[in-house]
Amino acid sequence: MKARAFSYARPSTVMEALETFADAGEDASYVAGGQSLVPALALRLQAPQLLIDIAHIEALRGVELQGGWLRIGALTRHCEVLTDPLIARHAPLYHAAAPHVAHPAIRNRGTIGGSISHSDPASEFPAMTLAMGAELELVSRTGTRRVAADDFFIDLFQTAIEPGELLVAIHVPVIRPGHRWAFHEFARRRGDYALVGCGVLAEFSDGLIEQARIVFFSVGNTPLRARQAEQCLIGKRLDEAAVAAAQALVGGDLDPPEDEHVPPAMKRHLARVLLGRLLGQIMRQDS
């Protein structure tokens, strides 16, 4: 289990990284924390000719409030997501999900930008990016653009990042007073990829649900919004009947792939149970 040979570059600015990538053509791969990429290289599932190490680019670091948005640098490590007070306050679903991301040593090195770019459908951070309605800041040699999470996760390990672009930061709209949220996942062992996971962010006004984002992961090729379940909650008071109604719809929102060990029926069942528990949790927060 040894990676194929490759060469290595360590740019110190974003522009240098982009140019290095452009010069190398498509046979280059960025590495930040490398916690998903290195095993793939060791297994020879991937074999880039050039590894571009972006971990030393200062501009990709840092967490700061920018108006109504929290800007989280792509190099922010999972362990920092777990402990950063700004993230805990303004992007609480990341904070809630962080303890479930793999194990301490992985969290010490893995980066949020890497996780979102990699876009593993079983990963917590891509799903919570979608749940919080964040925007992804992508930089290329020709400029910068921001892509809404709803438009970002396209298919299995496929995102809106174009070749030559680099994810530099995540912008999360900060939590407002009417917001309630909950996160949980069912996993067979601590730190395993979830059988099913979910984050819920709901905004209440006068006791009624004004907006809801319910995002599941480990249920398909990308993180998935349970749109029918979301829709049925809008304008409602969150009570047992509303929870049951959302639960009844969630099975139809999801289309899990065939899997011998975790069949679609089981995924749907677990999703219903999980949604019930999360909405119940939010219901109790309000009372």
Binding site: F186, R188, L195, H261, V262, P263, A265, M266, H269
Partner: peptide, 13 residues
């Protein structure tokens, strides 16, 4: 005794 087998035994799936 995986969750899938237990859920099946319980009649959930």
């Amino acid at each position: 005794m995986t969750p899938a087998r237990i859920l099946k035994a319980l009649g959930h799936i």
